[in-house]
Write a protein that binds this DNA or RNA. Sequence first.
RNA 1: GCCCAUGUGGCGGAAUUGGUAGACGCGCCAGACUCAAAAUCUGGUUCUCGCAAGGGAGUGAAGGUUCGAUUCCUUUCGUGGGCACCA
Length: 1152
Amino acid sequence: MEYNFRDIEKKWQNWWKEKQTYKVDNNSPKPKYYVLDMFPYPSGAGLHVGHPLGYIASDIYARYKRLKGFNVLHPMGYDAFGLPAEQYAIEHGIHPAISTAQNIENFRKQLDKIGFCFDWSREVNTSEPSYYKWTQWIFLQLFKSFYNRTTKKAESIESLVEIFEKAGNENHPVPNSQFQLTENGEQPAVSGNTFTAEQWKSFTEKQQQDILMEYRLAYCGYGEVNWCEALGTVLANDEVVNGVSERGGYPVVKKKLRQWYLRITEYADRLLEGLRSVHFSEAMKEMQTNWIGKSYGAEIDFRISDSEEKLKVFTTRPDTIFGVDFMVIAPEHELVSKITTEEQKKEVEDYLAWVKSRSDRERMAEKQVSGAFTGAYAFNPFDQRMIPIYVSEYVLIGYGTGAIMAVPCGDERDFKFAKHFDIPITNILGEKFNGEEANPTKDAELANSNFLTGMLMRDAIKVVMEDIEDLGYGKAKVNYKMRDAAFSRQRYWGEPFPIIWKDGIAYPLDENELPLELPNLQNIKPGKDGEGPLANLKDWIEVPASSVIDLTPNPSPKERGKNPVPGYITNTVEQWKILSAYAKENRRNTTEAEDKLWQELRNRNLNGCKFRRQHPIAGYIPDFVCLEKKLIVEIDGEYHNEAEQKKFDDARTEWLKEHQYKLIRFTNDEVINHLPEVLQKISNALTAEDSTAAAPSPLERAGGEVALRESSTMPGYAGSSWYFLRYMDPHNDETFCDKKASDYWNQVDVYVGGTEHAVGHLLYSRMWTKFLFDLGLISFDEPYKKLLNQGMIQGSSRFVYRLFYNLNDESIPKIDKQFFFSFNHVLKLESNYRSAIQFLIKNIAEFSSFKEEDFNAISFPPIHVDVNIVDGIELDIEKFKQWRNGEYANAEFILEDGKYICGVETEKMSKSKFNTVDPSDLVEKYGADTFRMYEMFLGPVEQSKPWDTKGIEGVHRFLRKLWRLFYKEVATAPSPSDNLSRPFGRAGGEVIITNEKPTDAELKILHKAIKKIEEDTERFSFNTAVSAFMVCVNELADIKCNKKEILEPLAIMLSSYAPHIAEELYHALGNEASVLDAKYPTLNSTYLIESTKEYPISINGKLRTTISLPLDINQKDAEEIVLQNDVVKKWLDGKSPKKIIFVKSKMVNVVI
RNA sequence: GCCCAUGUGGCGGAAUUGGUAGACGCGCCAGACUCAAAAUCUGGUUCUCGCAAGGGAGUGAAGGUUCGAUUCCUUUCGUGGGCACCA
């Protein structure tokens, strides 16, 4: 029987689906294992062969762990919010929701063909309200929290308010030292940003809120963005080229805009520490460490000439203080305008204008020194030396204080700057400085350094640091290069912020109003003044001011302890947790009446309205609530009769009325005995609510006082910062992830994805995890135990070369044909203009009438050609003529050896370069199993490599060879190059497996494979594991082994790599159950024990011969045998060896 | 400019801890089967000198450590990727 992969793969994929083989349960006696892929952004271009690389790797590992007896979670989903969908919408008028859904469908189809073991019942999609409800919820928790530096964890803003009320902010300074609380935007309200409890209480609400904003972990501030006036929008660095927009070439300037941020800097230390406990590659840890960039140094204040201002600099090398020859401040530094002298004004302004036109990228890659002298001087605090102050773009406003003290003899860039501006250089390094280049050493003895002279720099750091603090010149400081993460985008296709602005104060939405759904916006265009597109939606963006919830309810301390408090929103996580737990408890202990009514209300059964049962709202838990219609249904149980309960109920009714909630009550008896009437009443109430739509709008009701929703949306990384938790409990409507579920699945054991997320997604999700851990919502503070970075698969582009020429006499018509020259012709002709022309005249009939002098230009520009119509490097000429709707139908080819050879180049895989390969095509042609194994066989997963389809035949051959160990060969085996659908017969198929006892030799082959494949799989060396499979099958085929005892373990091992064929073969061996649930074969190393080894014998480290020696031989006996060897004797030539190195079970080296 | 990775046959790659460089696969060459092709099978395949036996060279380059280096160290060149010029 032939290996008919198409039928086999279809058959088992359906079988697995029917049996729900991949469904994973949160309850299992088995140990858990969590294998996670970085979920894809569903782009319109679909999958190319680079995408599945990591998925195949993780799939193999997940299946392997399952065979090893683990309960394996291996989910998949979509990171569906993002810019491309929005741009596509702008260009094609197709709503992002629609194009995203289409792309997802397409991705899913492609993924399904490869046979992954994803549990699709756990699929998440970040753009679905049921998902981003919890993204918004976590954002609100960040908003409602601050980082307590004393306890080193996030705590509620309320507890911060308590602290302020008791002791001001003495022990909790404002995290951002630049912040100044101002009175009416002018004078500082408090000096030094510290305030007492009394002062705190005296502040207005606005002032209090401004201060709290400076502490919140999600906060609003101002940040510079690339602003393009013509497009009316903010651009990413990528979209700015040479100071103008990539699209349209419009000018781009820096503009300050209100932005949301995550205070990730507060977590800097813990993010660093956490790296010690995780298994990331050293390179990855280094990248993250460098990004966080912790450094110890001093912040030093310099007096400035003719100014009250002080120039604050940060330096890690205070020991070089006497080598400071000039100061440099960033162009954006606020002091620039204040200290620049009249004479220097023009020069500085010109320089600033020039800098403003330059993109961040340009500033980064610039090697040229540039800058301007401000005319001002600073004074060295120790010896009062005058130091000129320059402004230059090489100093960045965002790092440190945005100003540096320049020490040219010790710093490369400072040195170049000094040379460029002819600033005299003070040598504080003595002989260690040669005047030619800077020397950044810490090991020189200081010279020319006043009281430090003669001291080792390393030691001087501490001494100066102490002096600086003692003398009040500055203070020791830990600085981080990392900055807070910008968390808002002025775009449409993202999560809306659950924030309402009123009087300049940001109010969080009531958590019960989540999700705040993204409104449907057909025409996506930027809002005015740099706002996002949502700002155009007046109906949505404007809300009645009265709907804003009270931020600082200031309940008395007595009240604060009690929960739930009527009329009071669940402002803290603790409260929410209590309520949630309580609600769950209620759901468990329902009354008969409640159950009966619930059966009628659930599932949008009544009027299509969604009811929730025991859903916490407004600090208590109603029996049923329909949030959209603001209708509450209560069934009175006996306990409601108590007086106190009555009082409580009244208070809550009051709150609900205020918030336009409607409440209907029924008795148990009504529900149980008169259900139809009850339902009718509820239905009436629901529709009555509808009729109020014609009544005054909420805005009008509010008397026209308006508050505004936040118009920005969250960035792409919001949804991806916590998705690994959602997979654990994807359908939970009560919480983002039940603690029980996260306790069971715990950390991701293996996380597979590309390095491009090294400092973005990975840092953010680590921070969110730490935050959720602080709140006690999960029990681990690092999300990923082990990270496996897959390399990028590059495209291998193919080129054809089309003749281009110009004639001196333009009136002569050109030949109306396109000539394509094979690669080696181009190589030869391109470099030699004359021989190229001669070639044309001599070899191409159409040019035979031309003369050499007629030409004035000739070239062979390369054109990307679809790699799929090139066989290796040979162009399929017929397919080429049909390509692109026959654009090259009349092409003429100048061949070499009868072939058209294409040019080759390795570049990024991209549709526009026609170098993408669709995995579905390969699956169709060779089968999923071949494709999976080939992707793995290509090389180490971690390594980037160009794609080349050529070798796939070899893997396919391997699977067929394996097949022939099970089935009798037939002559009519289909070939992969038959990519047609001719009917596959099953005639002549015959299983040839025997139950004979295997020989030791056969067992050795098997156990060698078990050892190697298990070790390789365990260390993610999939390419060598595939090769071990090949070796094993080659050896078994050589000795014609068809024994079940050998082949069955082999099939089980293979099932993680090539699941379809393995399942088929496993069943052919007589098994009924799925191979997925088989037990991984156990290594029995007694089959591998050898008694002798072929020792390599080297003379002076150079291999000369090998000798077979017993493995347990000692050095003395070995030496004797070796010296008797003819080859060794020959090299010794009668002399005795100087030394003999004997490494047991490795080698022997004779030194002469 | 800075950071990270990487460099081995015609090609993808292997060599896990300093111990036989080139496993496995592609490609290529020769042969078997075939009218022929495909498929399959067998043998060969780092370069170089040599009829052979057997030498020599060889992991980007140059040095170093070592009995022994693809592996460790220094310098250097090329390629790929990232970036917020990180004081």
